[in-house]
Design a protein around this nucleic acid. Structure first.
Lengths: 230, 230
DNA sequence: GCAAAAGTGTTGTTTTTACACCCATGA
DNA sequence: TCATGGGTGTAAAAACAACACTTTTGC
């Protein structure tokens, strides 16, 4: 009972998702930023951004902080994903509290030592980070079906086609534009503006996200003070 | 940077749900076991069963172990719930990896120092454990809607009325017996036996749970070796 | 026979899905 | 004017919900 507890360290990492459109007109793809490790273990491999949990900071705060420090990014959505604590996941004993985040395109900025990768085509990552990303992707795909997190990947104003492309990129299948339109407007979470996106063919109306509606129902956690992001 | 990391300790706790039928014929209620604290902090208050994470054990293993040590119970379903790590949740800095579990009635046994409480009517608990239970209940109510975890609360053989009562206890509302019956048998997760529960009025057919179907889809986590429970 | 729970049928409503069709613009 | 994506209409199919009704037992 009560073995050498002191030897366990707590880290916090984040899987950050964003969208990238290779060239205008193309379908967007899910991408994520990784940092290159500059020391052992796994020196030279890519890894999730993260760092050690500070003695005087909460988990959510640590996730925001380490994320900012390593990538300079401040995401629009941040949620705890899972705690990974297998004994052999690192040479030393580390329990990682992993978060996942969504980034709007305007929030994307380029930082030294950060590389962006297609989520569907990742290299071999440090530690168990490949499994972690797989799990985060699974969560993202599930959650997009019953919440409004897709908006966390879009700018303030967007067309319905753009929103639909987000869903298509995440779910990896085509959606019927007509039915998609009806579904989002029965959910009453979008506010139509009087502006239009022009350029292609018939101008498309721009919508804004209704901020009265939460991106996702977090249940009792949303009342806890630790969970204040943005 | 890299502050006194060594001062953070990792604990593992579990919210265990089971059902209790006050007297035969009554509707079952969701109950959970708590242990009375025998030392500071919060001496005398009830708390979730748990303990420190061992230096050489995974998170899932620690949850099973601490649960067995404190309550003598071995649940039919065990899943990670959330990591709680607010700075002020304990006098010393503790990050708790919390699990939640389901217990079949035949698995319930009475142990010294363990009390069973109605989930809807809890006393003031130690630490932030009231909030944790609230969150676990929310998760249970949600998950019962899109998975088959309700079976984790029932014995091997059960009638459809008994299964329906589990849903009713968790969701806290009546369900239409006719529609409920149809829903479960279009889902093809129950195997009818040729035995019947007699006693009340017309005998009710006993069903068995189809073990080919997982209680809940855990995504990529179900492939990880750490996640082997039962 | 009667009460009560087991189990079946029926019907109307809502949601989902597929797809035909019109509209507005750039080239 | 034509190609293309924006946007509307419609109808079949599936899922859901409400509730009447029949069956089988204990007393």
């Amino acid at each position: 009972m009560d073995p050498e507890v002191e030897d366990i360290r707590v880290a916090v990492s984040t899987v950050i998702f964003s969208l990238r459109t290779p060239r205008p007109g193309d379908a967007p793809a899910v991408v994520l930023p990784l940092v290159k490790r500059t020391r052992d273990p796994f020196e030279g491999l890519w890894a999730l951004p993260g760092g050690w949990l500070g003695a005087c900071e909460g988990l959510d705060a640590a996730a925001s902080r380490t994320l900012g420090e390593t990538t300079g990014l401040a995401p629009s959505y941040l949620e705890q994903l899972y705690a990974f604590g297998a004994v052999d996941r690192s040479p030393t004993r580390v329990v990682s509290i992993v978060y996942w985040a969504l980034l709007r395109p305007e929030e994307v900025s380029d930082v030294e030592n950060v590389g962006w990768f297609d989520a569907a085509d990742l290299p071999r990552l440090a530690f168990d980070h490949n499994e972690i990303v797989d799990y985060a992707l699974w969560r993202l795909r599930n959650k997009v079906g019953y919440s409004r997190i897709a908006h966390g990947l879009l700018a303030d104003e967007f067309t319905l086609a753009e929103l639909r492309e987000v869903y298509e990129a995440i779910l990896d299948r085509k959606l019927d534009p007509a039915n998609f339109r009806r579904q989002v407007d029965t959910s009453a979470t979008l506010i139509p503006t009087d502006r239009f996106r022009t350029g292609s063919h018939r101008p498309a109306r721009l919508y804004r996200y209704n901020r009265d509606v939460e991106l996702a129902d977090r249940g009792p956690l949303s009342r806890s003070p630790e969970t204040s992001v943005r």
